[in-house]
């Protein structure tokens, strides 16, 4: 059983069914990627894992405990962290304040965690007094990761972290993600850029119409001729 697991999730928006018995999972220190065409329900999986959308059936477990009944807030308290696709920083607050807000619910001293984030992303330390909106796209993404890490999460959920950025910034962001993984967290992300994402992933899920179509290690999926043809453009 994986560290964070969604089992046979079924979910719908109103009367429109989105997920049909879809399962995903990720281990600590592992990077799992969910790919698939538009409307496959990739982001929905993430919303269900976070409790932002209620599943009609199926379960979400964290470290073997069922957390399906918990609110988003409580799941974050239990170690989940989420970086939304857009609007993932507080633009008119400084880098440091962004990190402070990330650790808002913590009662203990958060300065150590802030230092750890700075260690991971040294550029943020340099720009800690600058407003988030004054940073470049890649740096802002680092602030977003840093903010999410402030709760000292065991799992990091990323919703399309490279959407709408240039290829150079994309590489920068992927290397940031690998850094986060190295820090010992379980990282689960939804990605549009399937080829690049699967390249660095330990595990991959290909979703089609809310169903698991292919599952395997990143390398296996890239080498799978069907996956290549259908989802990676040959």
């Amino acid at each position: 059983m994986a560290y964070l697991e969604g089992n046979n999730l079924v979910a719908s928006y109103g009367v429109v069914p989105i997920l049909h018995e879809c399962s995903v999972g990720v281990e600590k220190g592992e990077l799992a990627v969910i790919v698939g065409p538009n409307g496959a329900g990739k982001s929905t999986v993430m919303r269900v894992l976070l409790g932002m959308l209620e599943a009609t059936s199926g379960s979400v477990t964290l470290d073997g405990k069922d957390i399906s009944m918990l609110s988003t807030q409580d799941r974050i308290n239990h170690g989940l962290a989420f970086v939304p696709q857009t609007k993932n920083v507080f633009p008119s607050m400084t880098v440091e304040e962004n990190l402070e807000m990330g650790g808002f619910i913590r009662e203990d001293d958060i300065n150590k965690t802030i230092d750890e984030v700075y260690e991971l992303f040294p550029i943020l330390h340099e720009k800690r007094k600058q407003l988030a909106m004054q940073l470049s796209g890649g740096q802002r993404q680092q602030v977003a990761f840093g903010r999410a890490m402030m709760t000292k999460p065991s799992v990091m959920l990323l919703d399309e972290p490279t959407a709408g950025v240039s290829p150079i910034v994309m590489d920068e962001i992927f290397s940031n993600i690998l850094d986060v993984k190295k820090a010992g967290m379980a990282v689960l992300m939804v990605e549009q850029n399937a080829q690049q994402a699967l390249n660095i992933a330990d595990k991959g899920y290909v979703l089609v119409s809310g169903r698991n179509e292919h599952t395997g290690t990143g390398r296996d999926l890239i080498n799978d001729p069907i996956v290549r043809k259908k989802f990676l453009g040959g």
């Binding site: 988003t72 974050i76 920083v89 507080f90 304040e97 807000m101 808002f104 619910i105 903010r147």
Partner: peptide, 22 residues
């Protein structure tokens, strides 16, 4: 103050403030 900053955060990006536990 922490509360004051939380208010600014809420004003800045409500969704993210909620995700941060404000």
């Amino acid at each position: 103050t922490k509360t004051g900053k939380a208010m600014r955060a809420y004003s800045d990006n409500t969704e993210l403030a909620l995700l941060s536990g404000i």
